[in-house]
Design a protein around this nucleic acid. Sequence first.
DNA 1: ACTATTGTATACTTGTATTGTATACAATAG
DNA 2: CTATTGTATACAATACAAGTATACAATAGT
Lengths: 134, 134
Amino acid sequence: MQITLEADYAIRIVYCLAQNAGRMDAKSISEETQVTLRFSLKILRKLVASGIVKSYKGTLGGYEVARPLEEISMNDVIEAVSGPVVISRCVKKDFVCPRQADSQCSCKFQKIFDEISVLVQDRLDAVRFSDLVK
Amino acid sequence: MQITLEADYAIRIVYCLAQNAGRMDAKSISEETQVTLRFSLKILRKLVASGIVKSYKGTLGGYEVARPLEEISMNDVIEAVSGPVVISRCVKKDFVCPRQADSQCSCKFQKIFDEISVLVQDRLDAVRFSDLVK
DNA sequence: ACTATTGTATACTTGTATTGTATACAATAG
DNA sequence: CTATTGTATACAATACAAGTATACAATAGT
């Protein structure tokens, strides 16, 4: 869909980790990014699940970026939290068009939306956190 | 934000009017586009307000496209219904960033979102209904 | 002038997805 | 073995999109 607040937070969280070389615990991340602790944890879990962030349990636990900053794009982070960026719902993977009857009409728009969605994804993918940090 | 169902309907309604040379009443539009009458009326009002569609009252009343199809873009229609297409809320006109303190951080992202939003708008503006109809 | 037909305007209801929270659990360093 | 940290699921609140209802205004035809 669009870039939600959650995705926006996710970007700030990764940015925060990218700047702060070394491990950070959730509380510090929450304080630095101004996102509530609970919500930070939720977002962090998604980032861990998609392999952008690594987590460590226990007393000296915390989070850190899982790979070089050149290999983490804005698109990666957004996709980890909200799924693929698409301009319209009819571009989504499991979308079933309720108007399949008038195929000569609906698909025309779908094609355009799809094309633009890819354009946006590519553009977001070109932005790497290595560029953002310096 | 994103292209909502309402905007999607609006596109279909304009497309419907574009194909059907001549005046059409709301009921016919509703039937042809599969959008409920009430909702069609709501959308049509927005299209009239923004000068894309002209309306005529009375017994022989109805709606018709207000200008040549070459001069109506997909972006025009979407904007008429949902406002300017933006990728993130922080690109919106009257948005006040709650993080203005750390300006060296937030504005970096805002700039990128803004740039991509314009890209999408331009792309949508390049699609004219004259191209779609034929 | 009257009436049926059409569009106009505002406000309200409903549905759904985002946003955020609570509770209970699992792993690990010291 | 315990304090500290992350994990997982489910739940609640809010915001916004989607759709509806009611009352009103304008006009063509008679």
